[in-house]
Design a protein around this nucleic acid. Structure first.
Lengths: 110, 110
DNA sequence: TTGATTTATCGTAAAGTTGCGATTAAGGTT
DNA sequence: AACCTTAATCGCAACTTTACGATAAATCAA
């Protein structure tokens, strides 16, 4: 059926999966890296930076906006994008929560 | 065309995207959480734990194995799974690298 | 107002993902 | 050997994602 059974997982699991999905494309990783470096930029900068057509970049921006990771504000003809600091902190905490988990068993654990 | 233009992005961007993709489904997050808690478990435990059919769980395990996050060793009729400690450390570093980036601008950055 | 610039959205094609029943393969058990 | 158990794989249906050209909408400039 091709539909994830969201309702059978915890909110935390779904949330983490949603954020991971936002990062699950090199173009979106590149967008976030660029935004973290420049702090702010207009859409056109990203179109120039990425090896993708304008429509495709716009679509990736839409997805990042959909999970709340970035915000865009209209500035005349352009749109200025930046990372949402609060959301970024939230993402950080969620990922650190999982990533910080220790692993006891080494090489031949099984 | 539905094909990610991998070759036009950096190795780091592609790698991060690949790991994020592995985490981009609640079932796979659940599998990792369970493995981090128990350190080790057999496939059947996961099938019992998750709200999914055996074939589906097996498929998710395959994806996690494909990126190297988990390892499975045959133990008689069962297969014992555990997290690959080295890979886990690598994933941690890659994600921390991005997540640690500071954000200067607040509320109305644009 | 006309025209240029910038970004979002639409439509579409190709490919990938999710899920499951059925089957296969491999190891145990009797 | 015949049978059970466990897990992987196959085949399929439904849905989602990626990508781009074309078009629309909105602002600015002359």
């Amino acid at each position: 059926m091709g539909v994830t059974k969201t309702q059978n997982f915890t909110a935390e699991q779904n949330q983490m999966a949603a954020y991971a999905k936002a990062l699950a494309h090199p173009a979106r990783v590149a967008i976030l890296q660029y935004l973290l470096k420049k702090q702010t930029c207009i859409c056109g900068d990203l179109v120039g930076e990425l090896p993708l057509a304008q429509a495709t970049v716009s679509q990736h921006l839409k997805e990042l906006k959909a999970v709340g990771l970035i915000r865009g504000t209209v500035e005349g003809t352009s749109v200025c994008y930046c990372i949402d600091a609060q959301k970024w902190e939230e993402v950080r905490e969620i990922f650190l929560g999982l990533l910080a988990s220790p692993i006891q068993c080494q090489d031949n654990c099984c």
